[in-house]
Every structure is written in structure tokens, then in C-alpha cells.
Nucleic acid binder design. Sequence first.
DNA 1: CAAACCTTGACAGAGCCGTGGTAAGGTTCC
DNA 2: GGAACCTTACCACGGCTCTGTCAAGGTTTG
Lengths: 127, 127
Amino acid sequence: MDALTINEAAETSGWTPRMLRYIEELGLVEPPRSSGGYRLYGPGELQRLRTLRELLDRFDLGLGDVGFARRMQRDDALRTVVEGWLEAEPARPEHVPADDWLEWEQDKHERLLAEAARRDTTLTETP
Amino acid sequence: MDALTINEAAETSGWTPRMLRYIEELGLVEPPRSSGGYRLYGPGELQRLRTLRELLDRFDLGLGDVGFARRMQRDDALRTVVEGWLEAEPARPEHVPADDWLEWEQDKHERLLAEAARRDTTLTETP
DNA sequence: CAAACCTTGACAGAGCCGTGGTAAGGTTCC
DNA sequence: GGAACCTTACCACGGCTCTGTCAAGGTTTG
């Protein structure tokens, strides 16, 4: 019986029960449930909750930030497109004529977005 | 003279001038400046601004989300720790006794946070 | 079975985010 | 040199995030 109920978990982790429910809603820490529906926080969940707090304090993040990171990690299309966009940031290479560069950029993003679209439809189209 | 000034760039990109300044503030699109301080949007910046809009619409993101992704990409310590935290999420492996698993988890996070600290101090301590 | 706990759902407020506007002043260029 | 543009720096406001609290009802356990 080393699983804590929500109020106990709140006390040991430093979060409030309300926040524990919110954190679960964001998909960050999702404890298993008892047969009656009670959340059961085991050592793993408690550890995650403590390190989560450290993470937020240390880097001044919000729960939403970590939630977004989680989403990026799970959604291949999202991650690919965002990373593609960010990678295109560096200054224009001087050795490539501006026109060609633009064309290359456009092509690249079209490819990325097209790929994302393909995955979307692959996932959603179920006739 | 194929560099547009902020109002022209706003018109062609669909953003408002106010938003272009905000986007720059977030570090997402930082156009070079004229000698007098005017922002100069070249083809590359315009392309980035258009794809940024697409990106936000397509995945229902906020500018803050992309800003956070950018921060993660540039800050090694941040990326390492966040990814480490997220990777620890999967369910407890059944074949590892709970106590050992917890210990392993703690060690892992301590290592990650310690590494982050080391990088911080390496960067900030300049006696 | 009853006390003490848990559940979901709703409302509520403080604070931040995205956005617009405006003012005071500098730059460009005809 | 002056019209038209740009700069930064503020104030403002609707909406969303985070957090608390309460209500109505189900679960656990002595």
C-alpha cells in the first residue's frame, strides 16, 4: 500500500490537490486510479512531481511550456515543422543568390508542411 | 534595395507593424537594421513571417510556444533537462523492483540537474 | 454505517499574453 | 527642409492561464 491518495501526495510533493488535478489534465503526471476512481500516486509519480517543480523554478517555465514540449515530443508532424522553421533562422548565406535562397526556403517549407498534411490525412481519413 | 521597411513588410506578410516588433522581441524574426535604426525585411524575413503564420494556424500554437521551442533549441541545459523529464514518463517497468527504479530515477534527475548547474556556472562565473 | 476522504464540475479572481493605440522624437529622401 | 516614415516607451483591454473554492455525490475503511 505504498500508493498515496491525492491529499497525501499534495502534502509530500508541495503541490496543492487542485494543481495535481491540473497537472494530470495537462498530461504531465497521470497517476493510475483505484477501482473506485481514486488517484494513486506511487513513488514514481511523487518523484516526477518534485522534479517538475524544480524544473519550473530553475528555468522559470510555466506548466504550459512543459505541456507544449510534451506535445512536440509526441506529435511528429508538429516537431518536424517547428524544428524546420527554427533551423531556417540563421542569416542568409552570402554565397547563395537571394533569389535561389528564397526558392530553396519555400521549397523546404512546402515540403515540411506537405509532409505534415500527409500525416494528418493518413491519421484522420478513415472511410 | 529589395529590403522592405516595417509597414511594407506588414502589408506583404499579413502581420501588423506592432506584431512584427513583438515577434522580433520574442527573437523569432530579427531583421537587420539600417544605419539609422530602421528594420529592414528582406526576402528571407518575409518568407519566415509567412511560414510562421502558417505554422501557428495549422497547429493552433501561440507565439509564446514557438518562442519556447526556440529557447529549448538554443539552451542546451534547458533542452536536456526538459527532455530528460519527459522521457522518464513511461509507466514503471514491471521487471524492476519499485525501490530500485526510484533510485535510478532520482540518480538520473540529479545527474541532469547537476549537469545543468555545471553549465550555468561555467557560463556565469567569470572572476 | 458513518466519518473522512475522494470524484467531477462549475464559478471566480489575479495575472499574463497578444494586440492596439498614442506620444515624443529620430531618419529618409524628394 | 519638410513630408512621410520610422524608433522606443508607455497605457489599455479582452481573453486565456493558473489557482482557489465550493457543491453534489461516490469510495474507503474503522
